Amino acid sequence: KKKPLTQEQLEDARRLKAIYEKKKNELGLSQESVADKMGMGQSGVGALFNGINALNAYNAALLAKILKVSVEEFSP
């Protein structure tokens, strides 16, 4: 059984999803295209955005690059 995410991890996910929602049209992104760039399925990206799975440093760095932001913008 997976450990529930901490409040901090949930807040990171909320900020990440908000940045994605704000930038997806400008950058021409969908959850599917983000998933392709990350080498995972769309459901995996959804789980990161919705605070189901915790972000690790690798995925955080990859998402920051895809969204053209710094990791600190969603994970201070």
Rank of each mutant, 00 (worst) to 15 (best):
L63Y: 02
V71A: 06
I19F: 02
A57M: 12
S75E: 01
A35V: 02
Q31L: 15
V34H: 02
G41C: 15
A47I: 01
A64S: 10
S30L: 02
S70T: 09
A64C: 04
G41K: 15
K23V: 04
E21M: 12
A18N: 09
N59E: 11
D12M: 09
K1S: 10
A13N: 05
R15Q: 02
T6K: 09
N59V: 07
K17L: 09
G44W: 07
N25W: 11
Q31F: 13
R15V: 00
A61E: 14
S30E: 04
Q31R: 12
L67Y: 01
A47R: 12
F49T: 04
G44Q: 15
A35E: 03
E26V: 11
A57R: 14
V69D: 08
F49E: 06
K65C: 04
Q42G: 11
L62W: 06
S33Q: 14
Q31I: 15
K37T: 10
I19T: 07
A61D: 12
V71G: 04
Q42M: 15
G46Q: 15
L67W: 02
L63E: 07
A35K: 04
K23L: 00
A35M: 05
G51R: 00
K17Y: 07
S70Q: 14
K2C: 06
E8L: 05
M38G: 03
V71C: 06
N53A: 12
E8Q: 09
V71I: 12
I66S: 09
K17Q: 09
Q9W: 02
A18K: 11
E26P: 04
F74H: 01
K24G: 02
N50Y: 03
L62T: 11
S30Q: 05
L27H: 03
A47S: 09
V69P: 11
D12H: 02
I66D: 09
E26Y: 05
G44M: 14
E32N: 10
F74Q: 05
L29E: 06
L67T: 06
T6D: 10
Y20V: 06
K23R: 09
E21G: 04
Q42I: 15
K22R: 14
V34W: 00
N50L: 03
E21A: 08
E8H: 05
L27K: 04
L10D: 05
P76K: 05
Y20M: 08
A13H: 03
G46W: 15
L48Q: 03
A47Q: 11
N53Y: 09
A57H: 14
N53Q: 14
K23G: 01
M38I: 09
D36H: 14
G39R: 10
V45M: 06
S70N: 14
E72F: 11
A54S: 09
L63D: 07
A47P: 04
D12Q: 08
K24M: 06
G41F: 09
P4W: 12
L63M: 12
L62D: 11
L63C: 06
Y20R: 06
F74M: 03
E11S: 10
K3P: 10
E21R: 07
R15I: 02
N56Y: 01
G39T: 05
K65V: 00
G41P: 15
P76Q: 04
L48V: 04
M40Q: 07
Q42W: 13
L48P: 05
T6Q: 06
A60Q: 00
G41T: 15
P76G: 00
L48C: 03
V69A: 03
Q31G: 00
A57Y: 12
E73I: 09
Q42F: 11
I19N: 03
Q7V: 13
L48E: 04
G51F: 00
F74C: 02
K17M: 08
K23N: 03
N56M: 00
S33M: 14
F74K: 05
S70G: 14
P4F: 13
Q9E: 12
L10C: 01
Q42E: 15
N50E: 12
E32I: 09
I52E: 15
R15N: 05
S30F: 01
S33T: 14
N53H: 13
P76V: 06
I19P: 02
A64G: 10
L5Q: 06
